[in-house]
Nucleic acid binder design. Sequence first.
DNA 1: TGGTTTCACAACCAATCGGTTGACAAGTGC
DNA 2: GCACTTGTCAACCGATTGGTTGTGAAACCA
Lengths: 120, 120
Amino acid sequence: MARDQLSRVFAALADPTRRDLVARLSLGDATVGELAAPYRLTPQAISKHLKVLEEAGLVTRRRDAQRRPVHLEAEVLDQMTAWIERYRAQAEERFRRLDALLDRMAAEEDGHRQEREDES
Amino acid sequence: MARDQLSRVFAALADPTRRDLVARLSLGDATVGELAAPYRLTPQAISKHLKVLEEAGLVTRRRDAQRRPVHLEAEVLDQMTAWIERYRAQAEERFRRLDALLDRMAAEEDGHRQEREDES
DNA sequence: TGGTTTCACAACCAATCGGTTGACAAGTGC
DNA sequence: GCACTTGTCAACCGATTGGTTGTGAAACCA
C-alpha cells in the first residue's frame, strides 16, 4: 500500500461519521439515501464522506439506474491491520527482551547477594 | 475505547511523519532531539507531532533531567486493530454467505437444466 | 553564578476539512 | 415531453491542521 494511500485510509477512518458508514456497510451494500437517512446531515454531506472513503479505496460505487449502491472493500482494512500489527509486534518484542534482561539482572543480583551471605 | 479517542488515534496515524515516529519508537524510546534529527522539520514541529500522538494515547513522555524520552504505548494499537477487525470480519462473513447463496442458485439452475435436457 | 542544552508554549499563516446552500445531471414513469 | 427521484458538483464559511519564528522555562556544567 502506497504511503499516501495509507494516509488516506487513516484519515478516512478518523471521522466518526465515516466510521459509522463503514460499520453500516459491513452489514450490506446500501444506497446514498439509505446511508444518509439516520443522520441529521444533508445527503450532500454524506456524498462527500463517501467520496473520501472511495478515494481511500475503502468503498466502491456501482451504477444501478439512478441509484449508486455503495460497497465496502474489506481488503483495505486488512492492509491497515497489517501496518499496525507490524509496529505493535516490534514494540512488544522489545519489551519482552527488556523484561528478560531485567530478569537476568535480578537473578545476578540474587546470586551476588547469595555470595555475600555465604561469605558472612 | 471512547469514540473521540478512536478518532484521535486514527487522525494521529493519518500523518506520514507521525507514522514514521511510531515506527522509530517501536524500536526503542528516544528523545525529541533524536527523533527530530532525521527530518528537515524544526524540533518544534516534531514536538507538536508528539503532542498529537500523546493526546491519542499512543505515546507517553518521561522526565529525565532536561530530556523528555518518548515511549510507544503498544496497547492502543491493539484496540485499533480490534475495531478494524470487527467490521472486516462482518463484511467477509457477509460475502461468505452471499457466495454460498450464489452456489446454491447455480446448483439449482444446473438441476433445472438437467431436467429440461431429460425432457427433450 | 552564568552559559549551554533540551524542550515547550504562543502567535501567526496558508491549506485542508466538514458542513451548508444552490444548481444540475441522469434515469424512471406517467 | 414532463415531473419526480437520486445523487453529484461548485462555491462558500468557520474551524482545524501542519508548519514557521520568537520567547522562555528547566536542568545540567563550568
